[in-house]
């Protein structure tokens, strides 16, 4: 695997007001890797994700996405950085008033000058890729939770960004659907070389998809383990990490 750093987090201090959640956290994510952030509820996983995707500004520290500092960039650069990644939100966050196809077509129409028939063709390909062929004209309220996630994924990768962020992709899904989504993640990573950053606490998903994990902890307000999840499960020095991964 090439070891080009695509996301660099340096001395990130994050929190809400006086309340520090993450204290001087640093890590790198490499190109084409599936990187999982795990930890218990309240360990700061979601806070970290919100900082990575620019929804929250850190109290101090820097975050580089593909070489650009997301925390201290002007508006134009920030807009450029936003094009580099897509996000699959926990509830998929599809726009409820438009169809699945229109949801996926929205960024393609907005950011390219492709003619309508080509946009339609791309939407069809993307929906076929995520296994939603034939559901183009359904509204988000008319499809199941797993399908919503897949449609959300199709929208997140509408412009084939370099990085995809996933917030709890398995949440609310049955094990079979969850495994299908994991396979899809692996397939997209393999074929398109997209870097994946996944925030989750689903053990099966972690072992199935991840190349490398970091584990966050509430008390130490930072990373307590980093590496291959299977290795950490068996050989971590920290008993809590072993317990978490052996549950």
């Amino acid at each position: 695997m090439e070891k080009n750093v695509i996301i660099r987090v340096k001395d990130l201090v994050a929190g809400y007001g006086e309340d520090i959640i993450l204290d001087h956290v640093s890590f790198d994510v490499y190109e084409r890797e599936i990187f999982v952030v795990l930890g218990k509820i309240g360990s700061g996983k979601s806070t970290l994700l919100k900082h990575l995707i620019g929804l929250m500004k850190p109290l101090s520290g820097r975050i580089f996405i593909d070489g650009n500092d997301i925390c201290h960039s002007d508006e134009a650069t920030f807009q450029g950085i936003l094009r580099k990644f897509g996000v699959l939100y926990q509830s998929a966050a599809l726009f409820g008033s438009i169809t699945i196809a229109e949801n996926v077509a929205l960024p393609i129409k907005e950011y390219t000058d492709l003619r309508k028939k080509y946009v339609d063709a791309l939407v069809k390909m993307k929906l076929n890729l995520v296994g939603l062929g034939g559901y183009e004209n359904y509204l988000p309220s008319e499809i199941s939770g797993g399908m919503k996630k897949r449609a959300g994924l199709a929208r997140a990768m509408a412009l084939n960004p370099k990085i995809l962020f996933f917030d709890e992709p398995s949440a609310g899904l049955d094990p079979v659907t969850s495994a299908e989504l994991d396979n899809l993640i692996i397939r997209i990573n393999n074929s398109l070389g997209t870097t994946m950053v996944i925030v989750t606490h689903e053990l099966q998903s972690i072992f199935a998809v991840s190349h490398r994990v970091i584990m966050l902890d509430k008390t130490s307000k930072g990373i307590i383990a980093e590496g291959d999840p299977k290795y950490l499960r068996d050989h971590s020095q920290n008993p809590f990490v072993r317990q978490f991964l052996n549950r």
Partner: peptide, 9 residues
Amino acid sequence: CCYMKKLKN
């Protein structure tokens, strides 16, 4: 560029 409106780089 006549088809790209906003994509950078």
